[in-house]
Nucleic acid binder design. Structure first.
Length: 913
RNA sequence: GCCGCCGUGGUGAAAUGGCAGACACAGGGGACUUAAAAUCCCCUUUCCGCGAGGAAGUGCGGGUUCGAGUCCCGCCGGCGGCACCA
């Protein structure tokens, strides 16, 4: 190990202990008393008082995506985002904002349960140990979290409210008239709902949390169903086990009701375009029309969805999904055997096979025909698995001339292809042309689209269909309802019981009493599913069966449940009577118009930082729950997260993704031991822009570590440090106490700053402040390096200049900053105020102005000279100076000067030829 | 295939349309040292030149502009997302 640059190993734990003991970073809810000696209170004249929301400074809620506390411990990727948010939290605190910066644990999840299945150890035990390890690691990095608000999704005091929110969804429906969630009591019933049982069935079919028999992704190896999003290439996202489709009774959440609002409200929030685009694609809104086709020789009609009703005249066949309910009815006897064989083939094909063989079209003719409503054409009806049962109506009209998939199918089975769209550019072949053009060959009895541009043709044919009662304008979404139940032990039990109607024998579900929450999971000896495939909770018969004969729901909620709302629990984490008090929720989520520096307090979380892996699922689910809570009056903003930033991935030193198997994983504990938390934090920010993917480089850590060593040497007296080191060597047990032997250098003192010193400082203040506002941490650090490189040789070092510099450094490397801050104040005989709450330095532009500036001289756009130009020089002066330049002259002499472009304070360009 | 992002020295990277390569890492040279480590100083885009200096240069090809790493069009390469969604 190289020589230690400065005693970070003594400094860092000391300040971490002090911050924890003094609750330095505690945030105060409206109505909470602020201790008389708390630095936040002292800064804002609120010490010993109990301020209301109006009396507290404007809020800043800065949130990290909380981790799953895995057995592997923290990874260098975690602290990247955490460091960025911590720097901003400390910066905003210094600016006078009331910062909410919490941390917690997303602790339900599969690994602890699988470990329990293997070893019989209760997941609680594993989880507690892992949380302890994560806590130790995160604390060793010196983040300014308010630990009094720590949450743990597996804590009954937490999941009580997860269950409570589920019941809010359960007891609500989406009223299409008002476009929002309302209590189920407002559901209007149709006249035929004349019995309580019918009303119940009607009501249960409209709840935001409902039960459906649905084909699900069953993973036999994990013994559970998975959401579509948790299945990747036909395998489970966790573990990579095979997944099969299987119909099962499942709890679903009606997120599709919110599809439009989830889409529209992206306009309210400050997320990257790429992230918004991912959400838009996932929601997958598409406008089109539903059209009814009469089946030839049957009473039934087939309804199709199309985004191109303008191509209706080009429909030469129809395709139903193999699972379509009309298939059995319309199949002719001669085709029956083949159709049934195909249905079996399609059902047995896994998603993986469907995807891999996507381009090879398969299908079978049913023997039936349908009538095209616009021209009366009799077209064959096929089934094929390229038509999905779960999208649109599960049936399509095929227009092979203008749809790639239909064309491939038509070519395979030699079906006719009829042009109905003329491409806008001559020479573009019409066959397979899928864009917009002009309608052709599109006339029938009572309607003609010929000559109309696609958009007009769509409008006209849709209006015609609507007039005839043959179809209507429709919007479809790719987004599906959220499959919300899992067959696991280590998750929130559903607060639901099943009852049997003694008269009819029919089963129905009911919510348990709100007052009986939390519903605890039962204790088990064995965490596997039961022999007959029931979830593990079914093993606990005493828990399962209630005295009145009712049975508990045995599914549990997915891991997303706890992470859907944790940002709300932080607002008031210990509240036993509500998920958060209304006052706390309003204060932290809406703030009030800002005073002082920094952005206006945002509607929702001011800044949320986390990985891209949650770009769709977590963020969509959380937005959905938040909107339901908003509709029901439990929260006051339509969106949970105002500004969202994705941190980039950190790769191994070899440029590959870090993984155990590659052996390129960097353990933060090792880095901390050798270089300390301050250097670690600084390096993670110095590597490059936060959002970029970048490789780890241990030598890069040494670079910033050396910088911190230079900062240390900027302040301390070398001789005293030698004494300190000798004392430590002689008496290592009291190393911390020996720190007192370190004195600051005699060159540091209360002396007036020179103009050059002030200029160096204020340039640094300006750059660091501006960069922090834009989250450009790497360039802020380089500005501080430049300051230190310039300040090291100063013969005298004014304490005021050094103090301001420490403040700039503090958000990045807070331990060293605190230590030097304290020493500096002691050195000049003044008491040290709390660094964490010291007002952020402001720069004085007057100190940065010079009386002249460097002016590049270009000839024909090429740099030829740099002139020193006085500020008051006119354009003519500058031009004259440039023309007189000895270095530039040879490049235009003898040529005709065409033009001289003078851009004051930028450049002068002489154009000559 | 579609959508999005990104291509700058040996490496990580800087650069409101105005001096490309700040700040670091690595490398080379030097000071200090009995020696090493640590520290400090100098050099370090490429090519030509002893030098002063010159030429080229931000994935490739065009364009706009007095001036393009930056803006526009077309390619090539990488990363991420979606993927039979009618």
């Amino acid at each position: 190990m190289a020589r230690r640059q400065y005693p970070f190993h003594l400094i860092e734990p000391r300040w971490q202990d002090r911050w924890l003991a003094g609750q330095t970073f505690r945030a105060f809810n409206p109505g909470e008393s602020i201790p008389a000696d708390h630095p936040f209170g002292l800064r804002h004249n609120l010490a010993g008082r109990t301020p209301s929301a109006d009396e507290l400074p404007p809020k800043f809620y800065i949130l990290d995506m909380f981790p799953y506390p895995s057995g592997a411990g923290l990874h260098v990727g975690h602290p990247e985002g955490y460091t960025a948010t911590d720097i901003l939290a400390r910066y905003r605190r210094a600016q006078g904002r009331h910062v909410l910066h919490p941390m917690g644990w997303d602790a339900f999840g599969l690994p602890a349960e699988q470990y329990a299945i293997k070893t019989g150890q209760h997941p609680r035990v594993t989880t507690t140990a892992n949380i302890a390890n994560f806590t130790r690691q995160i604390r060793s990095l010196g983040f300014s979290y308010d630990w009094s608000r720590e949450v743990d999704t597996t804590d009954p005091g937490y999941f009580r409210w997860t269950q409570w929110i589920f019941l809010q969804l359960y007891e609500a429906w989406f009223n299409p008239a008002t476009r929002r969630a309302e209590p189920v009591s407002t559901i209007p019933y149709p006249a035929d709902c004349d019995t309580e049982a019918r009303r119940r069935a009607y009501r249960d079919a409209r709840r935001l949390a409902y039960v459906a028999e649905a084909p699900v992704n069953w993973c036999p190896a994990l013994g559970t169903v998975l959401a579509n999003e948790e299945v990747v290439d036909g395998k489970s996202e966790v573990g990579g086990f095979p997944v099969v489709r299987k119909p099962m009774r499942q709890w679903m959440l009606r997120i599709t009701a919110y599809a439009d609002r989830l889409l529209e409200d992206l306009g309210l929030i400050d997320w990257s375009d790429s992230l918004k685009e991912m959400q838009r694609n996932w929601i997958g809104r598409s406008e089109g029309a539903e059209v009814d086709f009469q089946l030839d020789g049957h009473a039934a009609k087939v309804r199709v969805f199309t985004t191109r009703p303008d191509t209706l005249f080009g429909a030469t066949y129809m395709v139903l999904s193999p699972e379509h309910r009309l298939v059995a009815e319309i199949t002719t006897p001669s085709q029956r055997a083949e159709v049934e064989r195909y249905q079996q083939f399609a059902a047995g094909r896994s998603d993986l096979e469907r995807t891999e063989l996507a381009k090879d079209k398969t299908g079978v003719w049913t023997g039936a025909h349908a009538i095209n409503p616009v021209n009366g054409a009799r077209i064959p009806v096929w089934i094929a698995d390229y038509v999905l049962a779960s999208y649109g109506t599960g049936a399509i009209m095929a227009v092979p001339a203008h749809d790639e998939r239909d064309l491939a199918f038509a070519r395979t089975f030699h079906l006719p292809v009829v042009q109905v769209v003329q491409p806008p550019h001559k020479g573009t072949p019409w066959e397979g042309f899928c864009d917009e053009g002009t309608a052709v060959n599109s006339s029938g009895p009572g309607i003609s689209l010929d000559g109309l541009p696609t958009a007009d043709a769509k409008r006209q044919v849709t209006a015609w269909l609507e007039g005839k009662g043959l179809g209507q304008r429709t919007v479809n979404f790719k987004l599906r309802d959220w499959l919300f139940s899992r067959q696991r032990y280590w998750g929130e039990p559903f607060p639901i019981v099943w009852k049997t109607d003694p008269a009819t024998g029919e089963r129905h579900h009911e919510a348990i009493e709100l007052g009986s929450l939390p519903l605890m999971p039962p204790e088990l000896d064995d965490y596997k599913p039961t022999e007959d495939g029931q979830p593990p909770l079914a093993r606990a018969t005493a828990w399962l069966e209630l005295p009145d004969g009712a049975l508990r729901e045995t599914n549990t909620m997915p891991q997303w449940a706890g992470s859907c709302w944790y940002y709300l629990r932080y607002l008031d984490a210990r509240n036993g009577g509500a998920f958060a008090s209304g006052d706390a929720e309003r204060y932290w989520m809406t703030g009030r118009p800002g005073v002082g520096p920094g952005p206006e307090p945002a509607s929702g979380v001011d800044l949320y930082v986390g990985g891209t892996e949650h770009a769709v699922l977590h963020l969509l689910y959380a937005r959905f729950w938040h909107k339901v809570l908003f509709d029901l009056g439990h929260v006051s903003t339509p969106e949970p997260f105002h500004k969202l930033v994705n941190q980039g991935l950190i790769l191994g030193e070899d440029g590959q993704k870090m993984s155990k198997s590659r052996g390129n994983v960097v353990n933060p504990d090792d880095v901390l031991r050798e270089y300390g938390a301050d250097a670690f934090r600084l390096y993670e920010m110095f590597m490059g822009p936060l959002s970029e993917t970048k490789p780890w480089n241990t030598q890069g850590v040494e670079g910033v570590y050396r910088f911190l060593g230079r900062v240390w040497r900027l302040f301390v007296d070398e001789a005293s440090e030698v004494e300190f080191e000798q004392a430590c060597a002689a008496d290592p047990a009291h190393a911390t106490a020996h720190l007192e032997r370190v004195r600051l250098a005699p060159s540091v003192g209360d002396v007036p700053a020179t103009p050059a010193q002030l200029k160096a400082l204020h340039a640094c203040i300006r750059k660091v402040t501006d960069d922090l506002e834009h989250m450009r941490f790497n360039t802020a650090i380089s500005a501080m390096m430049m300051f230190v490189n310039e300040a090291l040789p100063w013969p005298t070092k004014p304490s005021g200049v050094l103090a301001s510099f420490i403040q700039l450094l503090a958000p990045f490397s807070p331990h060293l900053a605190e230590d030097l801050w304290e020493r500096l104040h002691r050195h000049v005989g003044r008491p040290a105020p709390s660094l964490s709450y010291a007002p952020w330095p402001t720069f004085d532009p007057a100190l940065l102005v010079e009386d002249a500036y460097d002016m590049p001289v270009q000839v024909n756009g090429k740099l030829r000279d740099v002139l020193r130009v006085p500020n008051e020089a006119t354009q003519a002066d500058i031009e004259a100076a440039a023309m007189a330049s000895a270095k530039a002259r040879p490049f235009f002499e003898g040529k005709t000067i065409r033009k001289v472009v003078v851009v004051p304070r930028r450049t002068v360009n002489i154009v000559a030829n």
